[in-house]
């Protein structure tokens, strides 16, 4: 999670994507709180607003240092820091497709609801819900796909047998 001094470009890029997903999850919570605030009592709404502010600061703390380091790596042209072929980048793309699909469907549902039973709801509530769903699905599906971390597998006895050594 906190990169090492000898971090390679590819490792940094993976860490950047992981941090991006965490930030998106935080942003999804911010949008959910924002949508809920429209229906909450004044006291609760003010607590929610404060929570949104704290989450926004945490989001910056979570993402900006890694982003700055990645930009520095790119300026120095370190190999692997723009690795679109790796496993983590690939799962991020898949998660982005899921997030977009969810957002599109949620938008269609919101459009129908805004014409019918929920016509009196403000448009910002629908937008906040759609954005929260989109970012939530993207981040959760990405984090689930990357939750398993196998230890670094060294060459061992089983391989000696396999290679006939």
């Amino acid at each position: 999670m906190f990169g090492s001094k000898n971090e390679t470009g590819a490792q940094l890029y993976d860490r950047f994507l992981l941090r991006s997903a965490l930030s998106m999850l935080m942003l999804a919570v911010v949008y959910t709180l924002d949508a809920s605030r429209s229906f909450a009592a004044d006291d609760a709404a003010s607590i929610m607003k404060r929570a949104e502010g704290i989450l926004a600061i945490l989001l910056m703390i979570n993402l900006l240092p890694v982003m700055a380091k990645l930009m520095w790596f790119k300026v120095k042209r370190k190999p692997g820091c723009n690795d679109p072929d790796g496993f983590v980048a690939s799962t991020f793309k898949e998660a982005a497709v899921r997030g977009f699909s969810t957002g599109f469907i949620a938008m269609l549902v919101a459009l129908e609801l805004s014409k019918g039973p929920l016509a009196d709801w403000p448009a910002t509530v629908f937008l906040n819900i759609v954005l929260a769903l989109m970012l939530g699905v993207l981040s959760v599906s990405f984090l689930l796909a990357n939750r398993e971390t196998e230890p670094d597998e060294d060459f061992g006895d089983d391989l000696d047998k396999e290679t006939g050594a």
Partner: peptide, 18 residues
């Protein structure tokens, strides 16, 4: 070679190799 060494050698992350 370990997975990490191979990953560094070809410019990908260890997770990609594993």
């Amino acid at each position: 070679m370990s997975q990490g060494e191979l990953a560094d050698a070809i410019g990908v992350s260890r997770k990609t190799i594993s």
